[in-house]
Amino acid sequence: MTVVDTRGPRETRAADGASRRPRRGAMRRSAARLGWGFASPALLLVFAVMIFPIGFSIAMSFSNVNVTGSGFQLNGFTGNNYSILFHSARYIHDLEFTAIYTVVTVTVEMILGTLIALVLERLTHARAWLMALLLLPWALITVVSAQLWSYIYNGVYGVFDAIMNAVGVHNLNVLGTPTQAAVAMGVADVWKTTPFVAIMVLAGLVMLPGEVVEAARIDGANGWQTFWKVRLPLLRPALAVAVMFRILQAFGLFDLPYVLTGGGPGTSTESLALLGYKVLFNDVLFGPGAAIAASTAFIVLVVCLLFLKVFRTQVGEQED
């Protein structure tokens, strides 16, 4: 997902023009060779740290893996690892949990983040301070903030329990009850990542052409109509980027459940990434573990591509 076509319109035109003017084309080709030359160390690095491990885990997911004292042995080609997954109630449950968790948290974060961005946009003096304050949860390492939340949710001496006791709700066992634990995790997630969405949307808001909004006002649109019919559609690119980043991160959810619930009670808050970790490193089942990792990556890739396609179609319709 990191390789993005960054060619602007002018470059594209130049490239098209190149086919009509061979001499400039030759120059461009030699420049391109030079460019590849300069880029190759970086590309090698990308290959070593990204493509190699991804390829390795895909290869692993399709073979019988023996872990021995002297390394991994990948034997044969098999679909068995995937068949194990699709017959496992635990994998199906974790997939459902991760999907629902992603949809709910990303939706809430997008709505809250957009609202916060709209407020921030109106502010003049305090904006910088507020933004710095808002970014604190985002800047905290998740393991640390999850540990803080686990103190808050602690069933014996936690602040949350104390507050609930004070209002007359006793024996609440937040992290020990499936639904409550999932909601508690979602709250911690929203607390941490809403600022990220707010900043992304705010950046989009600041970039909006002021004339369009002004024109809408002159045409008699009220604030609500201006937002809903003019500004929100124009904000789409910024929103899309924010949603993409959030889906990618939320689907790979690991550190929050690892620290907060360990996937419990039972396996009710176990995400796919957490399952993959347990299968790989506790059970030393590298084949199925790699299949979990590869299938998770595949699912999130497909979701993001679909999302982008739908999004682009909508924008296209708008432009027509």
């Binding site: 076509d5 190699f52 390829g55 390795f56 390394g71 990948l74």
Partner: peptide
């Protein structure tokens, strides 16, 4: 997301990596 050319290159590189690995690691 990816221009066609780059997508093909990426596919080729990944395929090569997978092949190299499955032989190197056994």
């Amino acid at each position: 997301i990816l221009s066609n050319k780059r997508r093909n290159a990426a596919t080729a590189v990944t395929a090569a990596a997978v092949l190299a690995l499955s032989t190197a690691c056994s």
